[in-house]
Design a protein around this nucleic acid. Structure first.
Length: 260
DNA sequence: AGCCTTTGACCAGCG
DNA sequence: TCGCTGGTCAAAGGC
């Protein structure tokens, strides 16, 4: 009983998070339609927000439907896409699994920790957090090894977040299966406002959350790719304008989430 | 000096 | 119980 109450709270929080992100998205789209800037640029900014909102709602769905082992939501990128090649090689499928078992090629099943979710991506290396690799294993039945990462701040902040990266295919656009376990409790993530530094690690520079709370915890991967640079000041301006725009959008769900 | 990756060893889950 | 395999640990070396 108590657990279901807590689950409900978690679900509400996830819905609220999704709602916040959608508000940002809404404000962004309104801003763009006013100023008439390039649609491609709008898409580049909107896509990670849309993806994050989907993930949050997917998370909430799984919590609210405990009987369902795994719910997979495939991003409907086509809604936003206008033909930009930036996403053609970056299809991402996220799924949350509250009590998952992985089956390998020989039929062996191994218990997987709860609070894990899977992301299939072509760019597994940079998700905004700083990870330390602690293991690498050649997996039988595959041509690729599996890499194990934990949060760099595991000791300092007791952050139990982990991820496992498994390459699943080769070729021009290799794909990776990234399994995340546990959410970050360290509140350290790379912000897109910070300028690039020469001290960056292999996963890029990080800085402590400096008040940009309206930004999603997981920063879009493409923002860190050299091929897709976003002007930091421009982005700050856009997000600020989006926040102003959202104040004109009074939705019932907001009062519901406030009251809960 | 401190943090990272690499890598072999060890432990535990599963059939 | 045993062997295989995945996940983690920790030493060593590199940056």
């Amino acid at each position: 009983m108590e657990n279901s109450y807590l689950d409900q709270g978690a679900a509400i929080r996830e819905v609220g998070r999704g709602y916040d992100i959608l508000k940002q998205l809404h404000g962004l789209l309104r801003l763009k339609s006013r100023t008439g800037e390039e649609a491609v640029h709008t898409q580049e900014l909107a896509e990670p927000l849309f993806r994050e909102a989907l993930q949050a709602l997917n998370y909430a769905l799984c919590i609210m439907r405990p009987g369902v082992g795994s719910v997979e939501v495939k991003s409907e990128i086509a809604v936003l896409e206008s033909g930009s090649p930036a996403y053609s090689s970056h299809e991402s499928v996220a799924s949350y699994d509250s009590n998952q078992r992985i089956e390998n090629g020989r039929g062996k099943r191994r218990r997987v920790e709860e609070n894990s979710w899977i992301n299939n991506t072509s760019m597994p290396c940079d998700d905004g957090y700083q990870w330390r690799k602690y293991g690498d294993k050649k997996i039988s039945g595959t041509d690729f090894s599996r890499s194990y990462f934990r949060c760099t701040y595991k000791e300092e902040y007791k952050c139990t977040a982990k991820k496992v990266v498994q390459q699943t295919s080769n070729g021009d656009t290799p794909s990776f299966r990234v399994t995340y376990t546990n959410k970050h409790t360290c509140n350290f993530h790379k912000t897109i406002i910070s300028p690039p530094t020469s001290q960056s690690s292999s996963f890029g520079s990080i800085e402590q959350d400096s008040g940009i709370n309206q930004l999603p915890d997981i920063m879009p991967q493409w923002l860190n790719q050299g091929s897709c640079l976003v002007d930091a000041n421009n982005l700050r301006e856009i997000y600020a304008s989006a926040s102003m725009a959202e104040t004109n959008c009074e939705w019932d769900i907001e009062s519901f989430l406030m009251d809960w």
